[in-house]
Design a protein around this nucleic acid. Sequence first.
DNA 1: ATAAACTCTAGAGTTAACTCTAAGTCAAGA
DNA 2: TCTTGACTTAGAGTTAACTCTAGAGTTTAT
Lengths: 145, 145
Amino acid sequence: MSYTIGQVAQKMGLTAHTLRYYDKEGLLPFVRKSGSGQRVFSEEDLDWLVIIDCLKGTGMQLKDIKQYIDWCQEGNSTLRQRLEMFKKQKSRVEQQMSQLQQYMEKINYKIAWYTEAVANNSIDKAKQNKCLAAERARIFGQPGK
Amino acid sequence: MSYTIGQVAQKMGLTAHTLRYYDKEGLLPFVRKSGSGQRVFSEEDLDWLVIIDCLKGTGMQLKDIKQYIDWCQEGNSTLRQRLEMFKKQKSRVEQQMSQLQQYMEKINYKIAWYTEAVANNSIDKAKQNKCLAAERARIFGQPGK
DNA sequence: ATAAACTCTAGAGTTAACTCTAAGTCAAGA
DNA sequence: TCTTGACTTAGAGTTAACTCTAGAGTTTAT
């Protein structure tokens, strides 16, 4: 089974424009072209795109993704670099997860705070809530810093 | 206690340039200026910056953060909108977390794969590993799709 | 009191990642 | 066969978020 650029775009949640841009940037050297010059995506190409999406979605820049793709084209001599790259990316993702967790605490605090404020239709009442104040100190740091 | 723009920049891991840019964009209407025109950041201003950082770090655009800041300046009439905003942001963060989790599975698979490939110094050997193939099918989808 | 380090504004420049346009070619259905 | 929609390239334009420069003023430490 093979796919046109439009079908792949839809499957991956991108535009055909974006896919051509990636190709131009050297991220899709594996994609074949038909006799008339149209890109023909294979099942395997979709797997590549899933990995590209994964690296992009975890904050890697296109030029670094290209580095990885280039290593893949070079063969077995770059296996170590590729393994290292994924290990580095893993630790970045772990960082992102713990960062997101901290952001979530702040957001949850704000939701509790505004829920209280909306209930009283006033900011000042929420400010007097002892329970929220304790929560605030825990998440944002001491009041008298 | 109050802080100069440089001190705040260091505390927040930004540059003074960036803080001035945020100010220009209307994100810091609460920051006072000294008689000679220099910005003077209070303890409370740092809390604002922590929230701005939280919203930015969870993918909100500066113009939407400004919307929130504007609502805050408007007083009690916008409490509901602000609560809604944080609830929306919370669900975005939940999405991001589950997305990151899925990316992590793919990265872990790749690490396992490349670890095997490096051990054999060959891609082909890794391809024959049944255990990794099963893992691959689980994470990337069926082979014959 | 003076040098060094910091701050100010206005505005120009940069970067990454698209996003779109033009002008043409190709493929599938009536 | 014709039309409609999808595809092609080259290249220009856009957007968000900085990032930097110039030239002037301010603060701090000796």
